[in-house]
Design a protein around this nucleic acid. Structure first.
Lengths: 206, 206
DNA sequence: CACAAGAACTAGACTGTCCAGTACTGAATG
DNA sequence: CATTCAGTACTGGACAGTCTAGTTCTTGTG
């Protein structure tokens, strides 16, 4: 009847994953029942269990699927123009985009979800941290190394510098978001954090 | 029979609170049953419900009770000697103590517990953040303001500077601890973070 | 192209378990 | 002797995971 981009099975699989993502994000692991997910995916519970052995496996797969979206962030961070005159400008723009990406409600919610269940899923938290966070940090560190080679920055330990960069930018908004429910930061706040963070970073590393 | 420092009721109250603290920290909110707490406190369930209306109230009270221990941290941060020659040394010592205090397993565990349940207890997360975190930050900001008045630092926005200080120090270990189960950082790591963080901070703000 | 076999799917009932909160009894405590 | 407590049984609801019976899609083979 309809256009069939994928097999029925693949469509169901995706529907379940989408529903699980939405439900787990909104109500947490314990707060989401398999019936909820089945209903949201418009699928029978049996089908859910056909595609995913149990709730834990569904959760783990759903979380790890999100690491694919990190690529965009890696690309964002990968090349900073080596232009001495516009270094602050370029870094501030990068910082703004970085902040915008990380403070998206979805991203923050996912972060909280993983932290909340890091006890029950220790290796999951570790994997996500590695494949999500550390990949971006490593890319950023490489970019900083290049800038250091070009004598635009003075850096001993590029990875540490990358951590400092993200710490200066993200500490405030991420912390707030972890403890409060929704997002408390306006665009102006974010701009302030970006400007001030980059200024401090350049004070320390130029 | 025994020495009675407090009424029996007060003793029971404390026993329940201690047991709740231990249990919730170890197994999370959902993972801890009221029977667990009663058993751990060596008290009947009836008594638990005599002292605390329900599980939510017990949890909330237990969390807020921990904010009392913040006083020690506030005192720690309150007075930094205004000695220009030893500024870096003094700040590094402060940073080391700050890091040691915040990366204590109990503190990190509590932090994760609150984050994990910030959805279910929104006002609790907010209160804890205010009375725990922001109090320390405000004290630190005041101390920085004094140092700025003494011309030891160059600071526009003391609160932002305090956030930057803690971000530089805590971003790495706190992040790691949130996603991994236990503590991954050795004392050497912490020392490195303290030294490097203070160096970057002074680069930015001196 | 036709069609049969089998795979995947739906709907919902069902089991076993866990747990918050209540009720009751008899013993200890003050 | 009046409270407070331990011990324990009980209620009601939620939920992971299984099972069954009947339906729809997919695919290989003639």
């Amino acid at each position: 009847m309809e256009a069939n981009d994928q097999s029925r099975s693949a469509r169901k699989h995706r529907a379940i994953m989408d529903a699980a993502t939405q439900a787990f994000m909104a109500k947490g692991y314990a707060g989401t029942s398999m019936d909820d997910i089945a209903k949201l995916a418009a699928v029978s519970k049996q089908t859910v269990y056909k595609h995913f052995a149990d709730k834990e496996k569904l959760f783990a797969e759903m979380v790890m699927a999100t690491t694919e979206r990190v690529d965009a962030m890696v690309a964002l961070v990968a090349d900073i123009p080596a232009d001495a005159d516009r270094l602050e400008e370029n870094l501030t723009r990068l910082a703004g985009q970085f902040l915008a990406a990380v403070t998206r409600p979805q991203v923050l919610q996912l972060r909280r979800l993983i932290i909340a269940n890091a006890d029950a899923f220790p290796e999951l938290g570790a994997s996500w941290y590695e494949q999500g966070f550390e990949r971006v940090l490593a890319t950023l560190a490489a970019a900083f190394q290049r800038l250091a080679d070009e004598k635009l920055l003075r850096i001993d330990d590029p990875l540490l510098a990358a951590h400092h960069f993200s710490g200066l930018l993200l500490w405030i908004p991420v912390n707030q978001a972890m403890f409060h429910g929704g997002p408390q930061h306006t665009q102006e706040d974010l701009d302030r954090y970006a400007t001030a963070g980059v200024k401090a970073f350049l004070g320390a590393y130029r």
